[in-house]
Design a protein around this nucleic acid. Structure first.
Lengths: 120, 120
DNA sequence: GTTGTGTTTAACCGAATGGTTGAACAAGGA
DNA sequence: TCCTTGTTCAACCATTCGGTTAAACACAAC
């Protein structure tokens, strides 16, 4: 398993089945058996998917008799959005500054070489 | 490689080295050799990381003589943030409605069983 | 107790991943 | 032309991953 939390979250959501599980948990808690029903994989496979999501902090479990309902923990999403927004903003800022530069010095010479007289 | 774009993006960012590369590219374009310098892996390994980022649509390449500068394509971030926000909002909405429910019916009986008279 | 239901763990398998070294390819400069 | 620099491709290796089946565990009900 990945060492850092961000890698765990991104890695957990890199699987379409796990993303689908997260999507369904957003509508309400569910048990492993309920979650496994729509897929044609074993319930054991889904149990392991839930372990991955749990290790990433995306879901938590509780206990109701034999059942262990799964609950979505949406706070971890912030970890990702913060990382993403940081670099998106930085890239946009860089783009804006380049744009300004090009607009404030319009008399600069073109990158075209100064025409050293090769005959055409 | 993963079939769907979302899996490719999440998977690409699940690796800390690749996230670091993205972070550095947010500050400006760079070549493979420049990007590889800080890490103690071969330049071939970094080249493959860039292939993964490219397949995810996170970076693009151009050509300057022998060099092939890498450029960050930040638009793909939207794919992730849209997915995340969708379910975050849904989960928060669900939480809010549950909260309302609990507030509007405060006279409901507690989940505690009705005390059937076992002697203590 | 035993039986039954829900869930996780263990052991295995094939495919994918991230690293290596060595060879090949692309473009400029002597 | 040959040489140097920058980059990618090919082959290999160890590890991880997502799936399986079979066994173990947790709790309820009988």
């Amino acid at each position: 398993m990945a060492a850092d939390p961000l890698s765990r979250v991104f890695s957990a959501l890199a699987d379409p089945t796990r993303r689908d599980i997260v999507g369904r948990l957003a509508a309400g808690d569910a048990t492993v058996n309920e979650l496994a029903a729509p897929y044609d994989v074993t319930v054991q496979a889904v149990s392991r998917h839930l372990k991955v999501l749990g290790d990433a902090g995306l879901v938590s479990r509780s206990r109701e008799a034999q059942r262990r309902p799964v609950h979505l923990e949406a706070e971890v999403f912030d970890l990702m959005t913060k990382w993403i927004e940081r670099y998106r903003r930085q890239a946009e800022e860089r783009y804006r500054r380049l744009d300004d530069l090009l607009r404030t010095m319009p008399d600069e010479e073109e990158p075209t070489p100064p025409q050293t007289g090769e005959p055409r």
